[in-house]
Design a protein around this nucleic acid. Structure first.
Lengths: 230, 230
DNA sequence: TCAAAAGTGTTATAGATACACCCATGT
DNA sequence: ACATGGGTGTATCTATAACACTTTTGA
């Protein structure tokens, strides 16, 4: 029985919404392989570390954030021979959905870290990171349908319009503000009132909400609406 | 930067429905660690093998089946330090949903391979395989809601009642045969007529169907029904 | 006063639920 | 004849889509 030795890394798909666009955190690689190309942040798993702990450590190093500031889950694992020229490297990708940070990227050890719109980096990434990013974006898109994770993109207190902007940005659609409002506020445990109101630009003040205790949405919010009969 | 060396394995959660129960393929371990305990089938990833290829190879070795005979997908990756006493072993788990094989397990190299009801093996498995199995079962349960994968548990031609039995077994519920029939036959691309009919036990002959081209179900079939007002 | 965003009300339609009822077979 | 499972029809209810309309602010 052949027991090949592998290196194991974690790579992070960190998604946020900035400037009305879905953006991903990338780092510019300072060393070969793929020197000077953009890549997902990541690193080797240490000797006594669980995979999720290694990913959480990388998240902290890159952004100063804790996994529980947003949403954090394992995405998938990639191990094609040849995906890394240094040898046999398997990477476990994690997906995080994060609020747009008011604080600058504090403890980042990667000077070249930057948020980039996901639509602008397609095809540009090192290793197989284009595929990993695409998988992460698709996971995020579909999770918005069945879970209240859209709130992970929002700060602790947010308006219904903020939440709608998340859906519209991630799904690249327009949603009816009036029906969306009703749906969100009536779905059990999706959001709960935070009490205050806020005026964003013009118009009537909007109520503030916090994320509710629900972990799944019943009924779901579907991307492809049940269209009228053809 | 510490670059710990890992071994990488694939483990398979092979699910099928036999004797009206959701069953999982297990092997009795012939060697330490965990000698004589039941475990998920699996093995080491070879030097020039992709992860999915390694899992497909194990599937073939255990059951003689090809991944496309049912449904096959990556489940999750487990790498807790200490999960394997032999050292640092990361395992990439794959989930397969398979029809009940009329053929005996042909080329199996594990003499102790057997189908076991998932409800009877909880807490009995080696390594962290109880967790992996639980994750696989939950993935299967939720995928039945939004995808037509229930057909993966069925032979190439099946009746609506066969398909309903899949849902009832996996979800541990009863579904109304009449409403289920309508739903399945009207959902676009879920099943298509295979032309023939078959008499199972008593009663009117049932039409035969094949799996249709759909990859997602719109609208979904939900486990938790929208209940009447309380 | 007006534009703009927040939020409510209303109607029409699709989907789900419950269940009465008919169909086609074996015994 | 009748038991059994297959399958259709239909009333009731819930959820969604579309959109008219009111509320509350800034300019």
């Amino acid at each position: 029985m052949t027991r090949t030795e592998f290196s194991v890394t974690v790579d992070l798909v960190l998604l946020t919404i900035r400037q009305a666009a879905l953006q991903v955190m990338l780092v510019r690689r300072g060393i070969p392989p793929h020197q000077d190309r953009w890549a997902l942040p990541g690193g080797f798993v240490l000797g006594d570390e669980d995979l999720g702990d290694a990913a959480a450590r990388e998240l902290r190093e890159e952004t100063g954030l804790d996994p529980r500031d947003g949403h954090f889950e394992q995405l998938a694992t990639y191990g094609r021979p040849g995906r890394d020229p240094r040898g046999r490297v398997v990477t476990v990708a994690y997906l995080a959905l994060l609020p747009d940070l008011p604080t600058p990227v504090a403890g980042s050890d990667a000077a070249g870290a930057a948020w980039r719109p996901v639509d602008e980096v397609r095809g540009e990434l090192a290793f197989d990171h284009d595929q990993i990013l695409a998988d992460g974006v698709e996971r995020a898109r579909s999770k918005l349908e069945y879970t209240p994770l859209a709130t992970a993109f929002c700060p602790p207190e947010f308006t219904v319009a903020d939440l709608r902007a998340v859906y519209e940005t991630v799904w690249r659609t327009r949603l009816d503000p009036r029906n969306f409002h009703r749906k969100v506020t009536s779905a059990d445990g999706f959001v709960e009132s935070a009490g205050g109101t806020v005026i964003r630009d013009r118009g009537r003040p909007a109520q503030l909400f916090r994320r509710g205790p629900a972990t799944t949405l019943h009924p779901p919010l579907l991307r492809e609406p049940s269209r009228p009969a053809e």
